[in-house]
Amino acid sequence: MSEDTLEAVQVAEPAPFATAGRYQGRFRLVPVVLLATGFAAVIGSWRLGLGELTNPGPGLWPLVVSIAVSIAAAILTVIPDIEAYEKWTRRTTLLVGGVLSLVVFILLFTALGFVVPAFLLLLLWLRVFGEESWRLALTLAGGGTAVFYVGFAVLLGVPFPDDIVAGTITRLIGM
C-alpha cells in the first residue's frame, strides 16, 4: 500500500489530537526545525554571492529556494497543521530500537562481513517486529541469509567485506 493511501485512510479517521490543546507545541517542533534550516540556508546563500540577475552568482538560486522554505515553514509554525500527526505508541519506542539494530548491523557488517550480522538482524526483526514463532523466525533468518549471500555475493559478485563465516567455510573446503 502506498504512503499516499495510508495518509488518505488516516485523514478519513478523526484526528486523535484535534482536541488536545496542551500538546500544541509538539506540532510546532518540525516546522521550527525547518524554519531554522531555511534561515541558515538564506544566510549561506547570501555568503555564496548572489551576482546579478543577468549573471547570477552561485547563491542566487539557493536564495530563492531557501526563502521559499522559510516562508512555508514560518506559516506552518504560526498555524500548525495537526491533521495527519500520528500517535507515539509503545511500538514506536520499539522501532527506535529497530533503528539502533540497523546501526549495529552496519558496524558489524564492516567488521565481520555479511553472514553473521544478516542472520542476527533478520532473526531479531522477524521475532520482535514480525512476532513470528522462534521456529519460523530461525528458519526464515537462516534461509534468507543463505539466499541473500548466494544472490548478491556469488551470483551478482558484490564484494562484501571479508566474511568470517563464509571465509572459514571456503578455507575448510580449500584445505
Binding site: D4, T5, E7, A8, V11, P31, L34, T37, G38, A41, L48, G49, P56, G57, P58, W61, P62, V65, S66, A68, V69, A72, A73, I75, L76, I79, D81, E83, A84
Partner: peptide
Amino acid sequence: TGSTMKSLCMAAIGLLLSTVGQDPITGT
C-alpha cells in the same frame, strides 16, 4: 492527499537539497 502547506514546504526542501554540490555554471 496531505496538507498543501506541508507539501509545499517539502517541495521547497527538495529544491534546497538539490542545490547541494557544485554550482552548474561557476563550479563553486
